[in-house]
């Protein structure tokens, strides 16, 4: 998988890949089919592991040749030591978690830096749907309310607040629409929120 393939297939991942350093040791929490991890290994000489619970995704990741650990993220990241990764990715998975706060704290425990993405519930078509009295169904939230795996709905503003409460520093964040950053009214016009976080430096 080269950058062009990634950019075509998953423009959001291609954007996020820019935030991962060359040669970084990476943990991809909820690695799915392993496309991101594979690109980071091949394109940026990264090392590390993906975590995934679903059998079919574990198989796809194994086929792609990445190191995938079949594990339920809800059970935390106890398999991994403190500060053992340069970057921890949690891409479009956090919104499926029962224990968001605990996982978020665990993510920054095991990594120096974290990149977290989730569908922005405040994306304008979602707001329009709600104004019309319906739960939003869109490309970024493609499920009906009764069968969605997304048990948490958050907006960019909400997540920023939680991150700060958890003692995290937001290095930067961006709202993506079709994989491209939105600078004007991001919480309204971005369908995917991407945060770059690290532990707040302890005061001396």
């Amino acid at each position: 998988m080269n950058f062009e393939d990634l950019a075509t297939l998953r423009p959001d991942l291609a954007f996020i890949a820019h935030w991962v350093g060359d040669g970084a040791h990476v943990l991809d929490v909820g690695c799915g089919d392993g496309a991101m991890m594979r690109y980071l290994e091949k394109g940026k000489r990264c090392t590390g592991y993906g975590i995934e619970i679903a059998d079919d995704k574990v198989l796809e990741s194994t086929r792609r040749g990445i190191n995938v650990i079949q594990h339920d993220m809800e059970a935390g990241l106890g398999l991994f030591g403190d500060n053992s990764f340069d970057t921890v990715l949690c891409l479009s998975s956090l919104q499926m978690m029962q224990h968001v706060e605990a996982l978020l704290r665990d993510i920054v425990r095991v990594g120096s830096e974290a990149i977290v993405s989730f569908p922005n519930f405040a994306y304008w078509p979602h707001r329009v749907a709600l104004l019309k009295g319906r739960m939003p169904v869109s490309r970024s939230l493609p499920y009906q309310w009764y069968d969605t795996p997304n048990v948490r709905c958050a907006t960019i503003v909400d997540f920023k607040e939680l991150a700060e409460e958890c003692g995290l520093e937001v290095i930067e964040y961006v709202a993506l629409a079709e994989g491209k950053p939105v600078t004007f009214l991001p919480n309204l016009r971005g369908s995917l929120a991407v945060f770059r976080l690290r532990k707040k430096a302890k005061r001396a």
Partner: peptide
């Protein structure tokens, strides 16, 4: 098996782990 996996990860070894239901 997870004990093995954990120890390998601590050593930064390449490991794939499948827990088959």
């Amino acid at each position: 098996s997870r004990e093995i996996v954990e120890a390998l990860i601590s050593n930064r070894r390449q490991v794939t782990y499948a827990e088959i239901d």
